[in-house]
Nucleic acid binder design. Structure first.
Lengths: 334, 334
DNA sequence: GTGCGTCGTCGAAGCGATTCGACGACGCAC
DNA sequence: GTGCGTCGTCGAATCGCTTCGACGACGCAC
């Protein structure tokens, strides 16, 4: 493995010059730079990450804490993680994967050993135990989701409140007078996970503003639970004409259940989903939906993190706009 | 941030002694050890990862290359990744996340900069461009999946050939005389991705051995494609009494389509799936299935990697046994 | 009592980069 | 012609740890 000294010798310069060519932190004559770059090329030189981290006090690695919990739609997480890795690489950083089950100790470890320069935390809860740790670690961090007290933290997420409201607005406009939200599993609400709670609030609030009746139905993420909820809905609210679904795995089963109960969508019942576009497009019928822009959130989150690492100021809260796309699953109330 | 020197001073020993206490590479009196450990505790000492990597030539980080491709069931990947991270941590290693789109260059980079000690590659194809790179990088590696030429490599995977065969065996035993495999999307076969091909081969081969008719139907991973395939099956093979599904996202839609076509499962049609247990258990009816033991594969893969890092010999090929669990979706042929 | 082996600890030499101060060369102004 | 500022490069110190050889103390055998 070639070292910086080898490159320097080969190019006839000092090691520090090679370093400056690479970092651009001092000006170098074009002629010298070319010579150095050529030597790097020839020798296949790649700087040793550990040595670099030691000397510069920067590892160029960021940690990503991914949730393992139940009741969370996995593909969205992956999409998100992928986007984070890709964007981080564009900024010359790598991503270290941390799982929830190492918990707070994991954060302390990667920070304490200088393994990472910054962290990104997904699936933040209202009262998240990681938040105080992040505060006293004084490690640059970006949270995906909002804790109850976001003071001094950098947070980003889809504007779920607006998402919930947008669904209701759309349905109200179509003349629906009673709507139901089929939401996340009960334990997700119990944890106070932000996205579920905020969607619910946006939904409820918008319904009140429009003066239409609304109910919320937590639902486990499996087909059987979906069928139960569908049956409950039809029985308890005979006047129901529209459903909002914020729970990816049950979308298909819910559609099937309504169909089997003889309800045509959107003829008898309109449905709006909050889910990735891909899912909405492939459903039958294609679903009117507010998309979950995982890719965009991931990209922006990394941007924020890089800005913090660069000492640039960043907004504390970033909300990604909720956009509703009408498709085939909603129609005017009969 | 406390350094080893601070600990040494606090404990009244030399820095090297502290290092030996931590690594256990030389014997230390119990009294001294206790003193050092106490100082570490008091000062909250955590060794600097970069310095450690530089001096020891070991980063204690392994890279995990995850696939981003279409036609792959995402939750399984996550389950797998999770298991890898957890197991790696048990062995005092961290996991760096690499995505496919950096491609071979990513491998060269993390290896060349000594960022990682070893790599784990998922979703290996028959003729995988990463394989030659791994060979000449001489980096300890474990592949999840088998390339065409596995000579000298360490590979592990579910025994998909046996999985495909197990499904047919089970159905043959129940007296079925014509079976169909609903498989991965066409592009997955086109890429020569090992698991799809091997399942198909196991399936076909077992059918021939039992002397029963068999056909294979690639299927895109969305509900519409599932419906098309279901219709094709019923039309082309009126004598069909059993289906094997190896494509998670279409399981639900396929069940729905058969139901709507008036076929009772398992009354008119038996179905066996190759999918995670969780999915099979929650389907309606619960599916007889060969499970995909992602957690186990991840754990074993890390074990293999650690063994290689420790210089211990490991088998070149590890096949995880395919286990079929009978549930409610299969019955004797009418 | 001398000699030798073991055991526990120390000290110092790296590991491979970055970074800071210094310094020569050169251009420009006076 | 002298002086000064700028630019490009160099050399050496430094980052925090691991590891190897050395060395004193101690126990045991002869």
């Amino acid at each position: 493995m070639a070292k910086i000294e080898d490159v320097a010798r080969h190019a006839g310069v000092a090691p520090s010059t090679v370093s400056y060519v690479l970092s651009g932190k001092r000006s170098i004559t074009d002629r010298t730079r070319q010579r150095v770059l050529h030597s790097i090329e020839v020798l296949g030189y790649q700087p040793h990450a550990g040595a670099r981290a030691l000397a510069s006090n920067r590892s160029n690695v960021v940690a990503l804490v991914v949730p393992l919990r139940t009741g969370i739609h996995v593909p969205v997480i992956m999409q998100f993680a992928t986007s984070v890795v890709t964007t981080a690489r564009e900024h010359d950083h790598d991503v270290l994967l941390l799982t929830q089950n190492e918990g707070v100790a994991g954060l302390r470890r990667v920070a304490g050993t200088s393994l990472v320069d910054a962290v990104m935390v997904m699936d933040v809860e209202l009262r998240d135990e990681r938040v105080p740790v992040l505060r006293d670690l004084r490690l640059p961090a970006v949270l995906i989701g909002f804790p109850a007290d976001a003071e001094g933290l950098t947070c980003i997420d889809l504007d779920f409140t607006a998402a919930g409201a947008a669904c209701v607005d759309h349905l109200a406009e179509l003349g629906h007078r009673r709507v139901a939200l089929v939401g996340s599993p009960p334990e997700v609400y119990a944890r106070g996970t932000g996205f579920a709670t905020r969607t619910r609030n946006g939904f409820t609030e918008a319904a009140r503003a429009h003066g239409i009746a609304a109910s919320v139905h937590p639902c486990d993420a499996n087909p059987a639970a979906a069928r139960r909820v569908a049956a409950d809905l039809l029985r308890e609210h005979p006047d129901l004409t529209a459903v909002v679904v914020h729970n990816e795995p049950v979308i298909g089963p819910l559609l099937a259940a309504f169909r089997e109960a003889g309800r045509d969508i959107p003829g008898d019942l309109s449905m709006v989903a909050i889910c990735p576009d891909e899912l909405a497009e492939h459903a039958m019928p294609a679903l009117t939906s507010v998309s979950i822009p995982a890719e965009e959130v991931g990209r922006e989150a990394v941007r924020l993190l890089m800005a913090k690492l660069g000492g640039r100021p960043v907004p504390e809260a970033t909300l990604i706009e909720a956009r509703l796309t009408p498709r085939a699953s909603t129609a005017p109330a009969g």
